[in-house]
Amino acid sequence: MGQFTLLIAALLASTTLIQCGEYDFTVEVPPGKFQCFFQPVDLAKHKTLEVDYQVIDGGDLNINFMILHGANILKQDQLKVDGSHRIELNQPGDYQVCFDNSFSYQFEKGCVL
């Protein structure tokens, strides 16, 4: 099959009473790699973090997924086709949304955030 593309449709939203932001991204996660994307959080503006993702193309249609704050894993999925997570924010700083394709040695995966 040659190069493999796994597309993940995801919506990253920081929701508050004051401000709401929604972001859509498309990224590629190479085989054997782990990639994270950062969402800065200001508690004066952000009350929740919501992430939805879906694998829409390629291979077994699965990926490992995590949301982290510092070294703390807040949410985690393993070998999932899709997921939806909502976190009540109680600490400011950079939150990480990570896709792990380290289990694949052959296929690159495209992700839409």
Rank of each mutant, 00 (worst) to 15 (best):
Q78Y: 14
G93W: 06
C111Q: 12
L11S: 13
F38E: 07
T16P: 03
H69N: 12
V51K: 00
T26F: 14
Y23G: 07
P40W: 11
S104R: 06
F38T: 14
T16V: 07
Q96A: 11
G83I: 01
V51L: 05
G2F: 13
L7V: 10
F4T: 09
Q3C: 11
I56Y: 00
R86S: 06
F99I: 03
T16E: 15
I8K: 02
V41I: 14
L68Q: 10
K33M: 15
N72D: 15
G59K: 03
P92C: 04
F37D: 04
S102E: 07
D42N: 09
N64C: 10
I63V: 13
A10H: 03
F99M: 02
A44L: 11
D60V: 12
G83Q: 03
V97T: 02
N90A: 01
F37G: 05
A13C: 15
L79H: 04
D42K: 04
C36T: 09
I18V: 07
E108M: 10
Q35C: 07
L79P: 01
D60W: 01
N101P: 07
T48S: 10
C20A: 09
G83A: 04
Y105S: 13
L43I: 05
A9D: 11
L17N: 10
V112K: 03
L11P: 01
P31L: 13
L89C: 07
M66L: 13
Y105I: 11
K45Q: 02
I73Y: 03
Q54T: 01
A13T: 15
Q78V: 11
A10Q: 02
Y53N: 03
G2H: 10
L113M: 14
D60I: 10
V27Y: 03
L6H: 05
D24Q: 07
L113A: 11
A71V: 00
K47H: 09
Q35F: 13
D82E: 15
V112A: 12
L74C: 04
V41R: 00
